Amino acid sequence: MGIWSNQSSTDGFILLGIFSHSPTDLVLFSAIMVVFTAALCGNVLLIFLICVDSRLHTPMYFFLSQLSLMDLMLVCNIVPKMAANFLSGRKSISFVGCGIQIGFFVSLVGSEGLLLGLMAYDRYAAISRPLHYPILMNQRVCVQIAGSSWAFGIIDGMIQMVAAMTFPYCGSRNVDHFFCEVPALLKLACADTSLFDILLFACCVFMLLLPFSIIMASYARILGTVLRMHSVQARKKALATCSSHLTAVSLFYGAAMFIYLRPRRYRAPGHDKVVSVFYTVLTPMLNPLIYSLRNHEVMGALRKGLDRCRIGSQH
């Protein structure tokens, strides 16, 4: 049976969403739209500053620009459709649209998880091997790191999209979520999904636990280096360079592991939807703030840009 040939290709699905039209939910929806707008503006601004300011043309900021691009694409993949369904009251999504949403979502989340893991290696090289840093993190290595993150994420997304869309959906079309997420969609399949459940878990282990292991190993080495430093100022500076990344890692991996690595019997749709809002909308908004407000170089680039705009407007 072809991927697009079954009955679902004409019927599509109904996304039950996370909100009703009660006054409380209207306020919460408005809050999400404010967060969405902030995520768009923050990530676009950060990418722009990194591109135009030569002082930010370093490996760390190159990775940060890729992270912002992933966050930007993630919120644009989820929120506009959710908002359109809420405002129109239709809550529908086509079969093809659902597959596309799954492909983009899984690809972007997988790519971001891998990139955050490999960014920990960058911090290790900068702190533990500063004299070799220009060699360890040259331009070719940086492009390979970013490219491999995108590539493995896209492969994971394609595998899950094709597998999920191949199942027959001949019963209910009501997806208990605000976007097409694979675990929520598979509950509607009228076929045995146990083999795919194993594949899905294996993909989650690879895409989450492998980069998380890199993070733990890198920071173990960093901690050893910091403890050997005699200067308190040097220790503070080293830890400060890691604080933003550690915060971003905690937000992303905490939510992702809660969703995908829990046993099925402990999962509840309501909890999953709330946590999904956290890492599909809130985290992409917080990442630019985490990396800019606690970073003198980014704030300096922003002030420099604002000064140029002010001088230009005066002329």
Results as ranks from 00 to 15, higher is better:
A125S: 14
T166C: 10
F167C: 02
V162E: 08
R129V: 00
I127E: 06
G147N: 12
V106E: 11
M165P: 02
F86T: 00
P183L: 04
M165V: 04
Q139H: 13
C51M: 12
S88T: 12
Y124F: 14
Y169E: 04
F104P: 00
Y121T: 04
N174E: 14
F62T: 09
G99P: 07
C51D: 07
M158L: 15
C170W: 04
M60Y: 05
F63D: 04
I102F: 12
H132A: 13
C76W: 02
L115R: 04
L69C: 11
F105A: 09
D192W: 10
F105W: 06
E112Q: 15
G171Q: 09
S148M: 11
I155A: 14
W150H: 13
A125D: 04
G103D: 07
I159H: 09
S107L: 07
A163G: 01
A146F: 02
N174K: 12
D192V: 06
G103E: 03
A151H: 08
I50P: 00
D156V: 00
P183N: 07
A83P: 03
S65C: 12
F95C: 03
G117R: 03
Y124W: 14
A125Q: 02
I159M: 12
S172T: 09
M82A: 15
M82G: 10
M119R: 12
G147T: 02
I102A: 07
I78F: 09
S148N: 10
F62K: 14
V79N: 06
Q144F: 11
Y169K: 06
V182N: 04
V75Q: 02
F104Q: 08
H57E: 03
L136A: 13
N138L: 11
R129S: 13
G153E: 01
F95E: 03
I135D: 14
F178N: 06
R90N: 14
C51R: 15
L49Y: 03
L87M: 13
F86I: 01
M119I: 08
L115C: 11
L56Q: 05
V141F: 11
P80L: 10
A164K: 08
N77S: 15
F104A: 13
P80V: 07
H132W: 06
W150Y: 15
C51P: 00
T166K: 09
P130F: 10
I100P: 00
L56D: 03
Y124V: 08
G117L: 11
S88D: 10
L115W: 01
L49H: 01
R140T: 09
S54A: 14
G153W: 01
C170I: 05
F104Y: 13
L69D: 02
L114Q: 08
D176S: 12
S68V: 01
H177F: 13
T166I: 01
C98W: 06
T58M: 12
Y121H: 10
R140V: 01
V175K: 11
V182F: 03
Q139K: 14
Q139D: 13
I78C: 05
F105H: 11
T58I: 11
Y61D: 02
G153P: 07
F62G: 10
I159E: 09
L74P: 03
S148C: 12
A151T: 10
I135E: 15
Q144T: 04
L185E: 04
L64T: 12
F152G: 00
K91P: 00
P168Y: 11
S88V: 02
H177Y: 13
M137Q: 13
H177R: 06
A164P: 07
F178A: 02
S107G: 12
I93Q: 01
L118A: 11
M137R: 15
V52P: 00
P130I: 03
